[in-house]
Structure formats: C-alpha cells, structure tokens
Simulated assay, not measured.
Amino acid sequence: MPLTVLRKLSTILPRSTANPLGSTVTPVTVDKIAGLNTLGISMARIDFGIDGLNPPHTHPRGTEILLVLEGTLGFVTSNQLNNTLFAKVLYLGDVFIFPIGMIHFQLSIGKTNAVTITAPSSQNPGVITIANALFNPKPPISPEVLAKGFQVDEKFVEKLQKKFWYYN
C-alpha cells in the first residue's frame, strides 16, 4: 500500500486520547456489524497520544495483525514457552503479528501521535487487559493470593485494587 494512502487513512475520524492511558481503541466486531458473523474477521483503530499506551493485554480468540498508519510505536511481548522477550520499534507502514493468546502491548514512543489498524482473525477476538483482570475483577481476587503470586506485600495489592482502572 503506498504511503500516501496510509497517511490518508490515518486522518479519518481521529479519536480523543485524553484519558489515563493516552490511547483509545475503536473496535469493529460482530457486536457492532452483524454482517461479520461467521466471517472470522474484525478490526480496530487505535489512536495514541504522545506516550500513549495500549496496556498489556491478550486476545483469547484471535491472532492480531497490526499496521502502523501514523507515528512510531514500540511494543513488548514474550512467548508462552520460555518467556523470551520480543521488543521492536514500528514505523509508518510496518506490520506485526501477535499470535492468539500472546500477552502484548504498544506504546507511542515518537514525538507525535500514532494511529494503528489491527485486524484480528476472529469476528469476536475478545480482549483481556491484564491489570484490570487481576486487580479489578468483580468480586475481587483475594489480596493474599495476588500478594503471594506476585511476591509483594498485601498492602501493595490492596492499594492497586483501590485504584480506578480505566478500560480502553
């Protein structure tokens, strides 16, 4: 795809990034477009402010392909077999694939906003944001369990559980 087309796509419908994460995810799944039912695809636009973060998360029902339309992103992920760290900087036009179930995140690292388009291989890929799932479920997970699991003090876990957790 020519870079001029990518630049034009990135200017369509910018979303506000004025939130605690500095990013906004705009998904298009079967919930929004019934015609995606049984097609095995969906999309999302992710807008990043400067230093914006799409926090650590996973998609339990789909592999994700990500295309950078604007800006510069860094991401980190690790594989599930031996926790090998993968870190890369992505620029305009770069593509990366996150396999189904792999925990990953993206961070805007340039001096401008960033925009990506993702295309999961599922009409409803789901998303589990790790911090929210651990520190803000209803009902809450026992602080004792989380403290032991993370090898931290229970008071620290309780502090995390009292935070306002933003859902992107």
Score class of each variant (00 low, 15 high):
P20A: 14
T11C: 02
L36Y: 15
P20L: 09
S16W: 01
N132L: 04
P56D: 13
N54V: 12
L85W: 04
P14N: 07
R45E: 05
K162M: 10
P14Y: 10
L39W: 00
E154F: 00
V28A: 09
T11H: 11
A147M: 09
T11V: 03
Q161M: 02
A131Q: 14
N83D: 07
N37T: 15
L53Q: 10
P143I: 00
T77C: 07
K32T: 12
F96C: 10
T63D: 03
R45G: 00
T129K: 08
N79E: 12
L85A: 10
A44Q: 13
G49Q: 10
I12R: 06
P20Y: 15
N113M: 02
R15E: 12
A131I: 11
P99W: 12
F105I: 06
K32E: 15
A131N: 14
S121H: 00
V95T: 15
I46Y: 08
T77D: 11
S16Q: 02
K111Y: 11
M43N: 14
R45F: 06
S121G: 03
L53H: 11
P60F: 09
I103K: 05
K138C: 09
P60L: 10
F75M: 05
F96A: 14
I128E: 05
D153M: 02
T84H: 08
W165Q: 03
S23N: 10
L53G: 02
K162V: 07
S10P: 00
V89I: 13
L73I: 09
V115N: 03
F156G: 01
K155E: 15
Q123K: 06
D31W: 01
R45L: 04
V25T: 11
L21W: 14
T77W: 03
N168I: 12
S16I: 02
L146A: 08
K163D: 12
T29Q: 03
V95L: 12
P140F: 00
P143N: 02
I103G: 08
L90K: 08
K32V: 14
K111G: 09
I41D: 01
K32P: 00
P137L: 05
T84N: 14
G126N: 05
K8S: 12
I141S: 00
I50A: 06
Y167Q: 14
K148T: 15
T4V: 06
Q80K: 11
K8D: 11
S108V: 10
